[in-house]
């Protein structure tokens, strides 16, 4: 049982990563691909935060009587990554809006042969 508890978080991270990856490579719709990318991204966040956790530790905010803190470094990296992530997602979504305007569709298989349309 303790073996499962030691690795459960990592396995869920791998599952989420693969769920996101599958959505990215199999979905036709570009908006869904972006959702898949975001799921992939969140799984990486989860991996970092999982590694930073110390059992019986508390949040890394100094307080009296606390001796064990979780690792603050992954928190810093992921905090900024989330904000950068939404900003890059917005760039991706605006590309999709432009693709819709140029090709009239956001289904990947429908604009493959429409290069002359522009």
């Amino acid at each position: 049982m303790s073996y499962v508890l030691d690795y459960y978080n990592y396995w869920v991270v791998v599952f989420l990563m693969m769920a996101g990856f599958y959505t990215v490579i199999s979905a036709n719709n570009l908006v869904k691909k972006i959702v898949g990318l975001n799921i992939f991204q969140t799984s990486v966040f989860m991996l970092y935060i999982t590694m930073g956790k110390v059992s019986d530790g508390t949040a890394p905010i100094l307080a009296e009587g606390v001796t064990q803190y979780s690792n603050p470094l992954p928190h810093v990296l992921i905090l900024t990554a989330i904000v950068v992530g939404v900003a890059t997602t917005a760039v991706g979504l605006s590309l999709i809006v432009r693709i819709k305007r140029a090709y009239g569709t956001v289904e990947e298989n429908e604009f493959e042969n429409k290069d002359d349309a522009i």
Binding site: P74, L79, I82
Partner: peptide, 22 residues
């Protein structure tokens, strides 16, 4: 997992801004 600052950001960004943009 003790990452309160990260949770704060994820709740505001993921459930708020990116949903609206999508």
């Amino acid at each position: 997992l003790d990452a309160v600052d990260v949770a704060f950001t994820e709740a505001a960004v993921g459930a708020g801004i990116s949903t609206v943009l999508m």
